[in-house]
Amino acid sequence: MSTPPNQPEHPSGPPTEPAGTPIPAPASDTPSAPEPAQPLSLRKTPEPTPAPAPETQPEPTPAPAPAPQPAPAPAFAPPAPVPPAPSFGAPAAPVPPGGAWGAHPGNPWGTPPPATTNGLAVAALILGIAAVLIGLIPFIFWAGALLAVVGIGIGIGALVRASKGAGRKSMAVTGTVLAVLGLGSSVGGLFLTSLVVTNVADHKLREGWEVPDDIGGSRPPVPRFSPKPMPSPSPSPTQVPGITSPLPFGETYTYPNGIKVTLSAPKKYVTKNKYSTVGNAVEFTLTITNDSTETHNVIYAVPNVRDGKGMTAKLAFDGGDVPKMIRGDILPGESASGILAYEVPEGTDHLSADISPGIRLPSAKFSGSIG
């Protein structure tokens, strides 16, 4: 038995059956006869080629479920409170419910806590005390008056702040009251200053010093070696007609400084206004003459008139005709006149009057019957 030469290790095609091998019948429903035994062969039986595995379709990936959407915020929802920033090295303080300022639905932003201090009250108290003390000191009383004015303003501000819950209300009230008293003490300091100046001037006169006219000015008093002759005593008040005893109407009283005042005799007043309500009245003419060397100022020189029973007569106002008062400056050598009317009771035949032509001049007195 011989081996065929050059047999391939792996045949490329299907194995060929030897000649004379019967072809098997196709499969059917009838059972087939058993196949006859195959003859022995020295050829290697080819390994069956595995059938390709069916392609598997990838399973479809399920679609992800949609993420839940947050509920829409209400249109007027209050903003969430912002916690305070923690300081370095210290734990953050807990925020109370409703925020640091107590926010609530009616007031989402909250209300800041009221101030607990009132420094204006302390300042008003200090200024009030200083104004009272400094106002009583001569020559610097004006500083107390300034402190009092400032203290009143600050005290009012402290009272307003205290009414809003700032506290120290009693201190603010005390400071304001002391500041008002400081104004009064400043007035007292003014009187003390004038009293000191007067006493100093009298003392220097008694010691033989010549005191200049501008007391308190920059020129110092000049000493003299002989006593200054004292002026002759002025006549007693009982000896001055027109001051202690009245002058007749129409005469003139002359003051030591050269100012002259004349009050004419009263006469019946006749109105020119048909709508006048003036009753029985008398008319006076007042004349002031300046024979001094300085300008004389008059501020509404109005006589005081009384009837024979001592009752004060009423000044009549008659539509611009009367009264015509004297006011303003009268130059040296000039005169000024005015017309005044007074209502008197029916049957009055005697009147008295007094008139001061200036602030520093005493009143001149006149009397007489109605002409």
Rank of each mutant, 00 (worst) to 15 (best):
G182T: 01
L120N: 08
K267N: 02
P357D: 08
L361Y: 00
P248M: 05
L315D: 14
P114F: 03
E346Y: 07
P332A: 09
K274L: 08
A67L: 03
P15D: 13
G347I: 01
G208C: 00
P220R: 12
R206Y: 09
M311C: 00
P58T: 13
P50H: 09
I299K: 12
L127Q: 07
G250C: 11
I134H: 02
V196M: 13
G175V: 07
P60T: 08
S12M: 10
A92S: 05
K309A: 15
P34Y: 11
F249Y: 14
G13D: 07
G216R: 04
S245T: 11
L147H: 00
L120H: 10
K365Y: 01
Q239C: 01
P223T: 08
T293W: 00
A115T: 08
A172P: 01
S185E: 09
F88R: 01
Y253S: 10
V197N: 15
E283P: 07
A85K: 10
M311G: 12
E17F: 15
P83N: 00
Y253P: 00
P66H: 09
P108V: 07
V180I: 08
F317P: 01
V302W: 07
I355N: 05
E59G: 13
A301H: 08
T111M: 13
P62T: 01
A65I: 01
N118D: 00
P235R: 14
E346V: 10
V122A: 12
S335F: 01
Q239T: 13
A281H: 06
E334Q: 05
R306P: 04
A93Q: 09
S87Y: 11
S369D: 15
A53I: 03
Q38S: 15
F366S: 09
A65S: 13
V150F: 10
P83D: 12
R306G: 06
S218W: 11
A19S: 11
V302A: 13
P221I: 07
L127I: 00
A123P: 02
K309G: 09
P14M: 08
S363F: 11
E55R: 02
D307E: 11
H10I: 14
S356W: 04
K314L: 15
T61N: 12
G208Q: 02
A265V: 03
P74W: 03
S234P: 13
A364T: 00
T117P: 13
E17H: 15
H10G: 14
P241Y: 06
I137C: 03
I355R: 04
N118Q: 06
G119W: 10
P91Y: 05
V196S: 15
F317T: 07
K268W: 07
A123G: 00
V222N: 10
A75E: 09
R161P: 06
F139A: 14
T61I: 15
T3M: 15
T176P: 06
L127V: 01
Y342F: 14
A73W: 12
P54V: 04
N199D: 13
F317N: 05
G310W: 14
P50Y: 04
L247G: 00
T244M: 03
R168D: 08
G157D: 05
F88Q: 14
A301R: 05
P362A: 12
M171G: 08
N304E: 09
L120D: 07
A124C: 03
P70R: 05
G279N: 02
K314W: 03
L192R: 10
T285F: 04
E47Q: 02
A336P: 10
G319E: 04
P112E: 12
S226Y: 14
Y275P: 09
K272L: 13
